[in-house]
């Protein structure tokens, strides 16, 4: 009985009904946090004395870049759950996160590049963080491509699970090797020296936005998962009941 909280995740119907409620809460919470955080960051946080107003991009860039990486880790957790407990919902989550994660990775790449133009004077620099983010986007793309190529959803899910696990073992190696590669080729001149202390008036809105984007990601992933669950379970009686009632 104490494992009930875990086993109920095996029921797509239970998830579908609960997730609808969670999604609603997450959606409104994220909207409020993001509006507050973004307006605060854009209008009320003090101007950076070195970068000027262009630094205000970080209120979008930093949370999104965090999420892009966290979501890959979340997929790895889902892959472990899929292989250990054969829980199909974990595969649904993996599929939902892959698409959302790719969108966040692309957003973080673009926002990083646009921030680089006024700061470094060019859109693209082979900086360690930009480069590993680019590799991450290729990893996400590979997952989506692999899933699209395999017809049977169960088989596709397992193949993606293997790929995610291999990828997550490699990701730290990729990150460190890219950092090392960066020191190999470039003197530290291009590196943006992060100021040791950011005043609270700057980091509080950043924190609000980080929280907001995390909850927004949860909202998006839950929404995508619900749609996938309905699609995969379309022959189950509870789905027919649900649609018939509506």
């Amino acid at each position: 009985m104490s494992w009930r909280w875990f086993h109920q995740w095996g029921s797509p119907r239970w998830f579908y009904e609960r997730a609808g409620r969670w999604q609603l809460v997450c959606g409104w919470l994220a909207l409020i946090l993001l509006v507050v955080g973004s307006l605060w960051g854009l209008g009320f946080a003090p101007v950076d004395y070195q970068q000027g107003n262009s630094y205000r991009i970080i209120y979008l860039h930093v949370p999104v870049a965090f999420l892009a990486q966290a979501m890959y880790a979340a997929m790895a957790v889902c892959a472990v759950v899929l292989f250990v407990w054969k829980m199909k919902l974990a595969d649904v989550a993996m599929q939902a996160i892959a698409v959302t994660g790719l969108a966040f990775t692309v957003l973080s790449l673009v926002s990083g590049a646009v921030w680089g133009k006024p700061t470094w004077g060019t859109y693209w620099v082979w900086d360690a963080r930009l480069t590993s983010m680019l590799i991450l986007s290729f990893l996400y793309l590979g997952l989506i491509g692999l899933r699209a190529a395999i017809q049977d959803p169960d088989q596709a899910g397992k193949a993606c699970g293997i790929l995610v696990l291999v990828g997550v073992v490699n990701l730290p190696i990729i990150k460190y090797s890219v950092e090392w590669w960066n020191t190999l080729h470039q003197p530290a001149s291009l590196k943006l020296t992060e100021k040791p202390t950011m005043p609270a008036s700057m980091w509080v809105p950043l924190l609000v936005n980080i929280l907001g984007y995390y909850i927004a990601a949860a909202y998006l992933v839950l929404g995508s998962m619900r749609a996938i669950v309905i699609g995969r379970e379309r022959r189950a009686s509870w789905v027919k009941e649900l649609v018939g009632r509506a």
Partner: peptide, 28 residues
């Protein structure tokens, strides 16, 4: 990984190439 799909094309290559990064960097 792409054995089962008939229309995978060069997908296997695309999927695996990002994982080559550390090796290429060390060799460089």
């Amino acid at each position: 990984l792409t054995l089962g799909s008939s229309r995978s094309g060069i997908l296997g290559v695309l999927v695996m190439m990002p994982l080559f990064v550390p090796v290429v960097i060390l060799a460089a």
